[in-house]
């Protein structure tokens, strides 16, 4: 009996451990944001961009704040992206410039391939 129950208990205990684990617990929000850096603006940026294309397109870029700003203008004017409120737009631009800026290490590494 115990032998048959053991695997189930094991799963239950582990599940409990996962659910009760401290740190950032829920996986729901984590995987919805595709694992992008968690910082102010992450959610707004992720949903705005990935409405039309995968965030992988964003994650490939390394652009300055000015260049991201221009990109948003282009997206709105020519690609029919919805226009975020000014405050949100600023938050998104800053987020992009910070995590997908010119000096990203990942880009440097990619170039060495």
């Amino acid at each position: 009996m115990m032998q048959r129950l053991l695997p189930h208990l094991f799963v239950l205990v582990l599940l409990g451990a996962i659910l009760l684990a401290p740190g950032r617990p829920a996986w729901a929000d984590e995987d919805e944001l595709g694992g992008i850096p968690r910082a102010p603006g992450a959610e707004e940026t992720y949903y705005l961009c990935s409405a039309c294309h995968s965030f992988r397109l964003v994650a490939q870029q390394g652009l300055s704040y000015e260049s991201w700003k221009e990109t948003l203008v282009w997206m709105i004017e020519e690609q029919d992206m919805s226009t975020p409120e000014p405050e949100e737009r600023e938050l998104i631009t800053k987020y992009l410039a910070k995590f997908y800026g010119r000096d990203r290490l990942a880009r440097k590494l990619a170039k060495q391939q």
Partner: peptide, 12 residues
Amino acid sequence: FLRGAGLATMGA
């Protein structure tokens, strides 16, 4: 995992 930080995500 320090105080379990990230374990749930990796598990998921």
